[in-house]
């Protein structure tokens, strides 16, 4: 090898790989910025309440979400509304929604379905109670009141 080097000065220079890390870093940042896990667009304001004793939801595939809150777009009014699957729904549609969610799961998971209520904290309990009654009728009894963990020190 060394003999060749000494002889010929016409060697092809090695491709500089120093910019490769930069490319990878760009990819890294791209993924970090763009990954959003939420599938549905939330059409309602969703300021979740805070609670101290919260549990983590283990299996995401078993959870169906119901969003409740005042619409972000003012043209739909300011009263709290229910959102199921990227559109506004009425209280009567909840049972149907639960049945559809159940149909989409396989047999073993049907009984383990959890309904997560993502309710804005300024919502009045009337709406929430109606939803709870509907869920009882649909036999979807496992409910999670979605709330953030309180961080203040007491």
């Amino acid at each position: 090898m060394s003999r060749f080097k000494q002889k010929g000065g016409k060697e092809v220079p090695a491709i500089s790989t120093s910019s490769l890390p930069d490319i990878i870093f760009m990819l890294l940042f791209f993924f970090m910025v763009t990954t959003t896990m939420r599938q549905a667009d939330v059409l309602v304001r969703n300021n979740l309440p805070q609670a101290t004793d919260v549990q983590k939801l283990e299996k995401k595939s078993l959870v169906s979400f119901i969003y409740v809150g005042p619409p972000t777009n003012k043209k739909y009014g300011t009263e709290s509304r229910i959102q199921l699957n990227e559109r506004f729904a009425t209280i009567e549609e909840i049972q149907e929604f639960i049945f559809k969610e159940r149909e989409a799961r396989n047999e073993a998971d049907k009984k383990k379905l959890i309904t997560s209520l993502k309710v804005d904290k300024e919502t009045k309990m009337g709406v929430v109670t109606d939803i709870k009654q509907e869920l009882r009728q649909a036999n979807a009894l496992k409910v999670v009141y979605s709330s953030n963990k309180k961080t203040d020190l007491k």
Partner: peptide
């Protein structure tokens, strides 16, 4: 991560 208070509703 989704967190919340887990409750069991009474049957209908």
């Amino acid at each position: 991560v989704d967190t919340g208070i887990m409750v069991q509703l009474p049957p209908p």
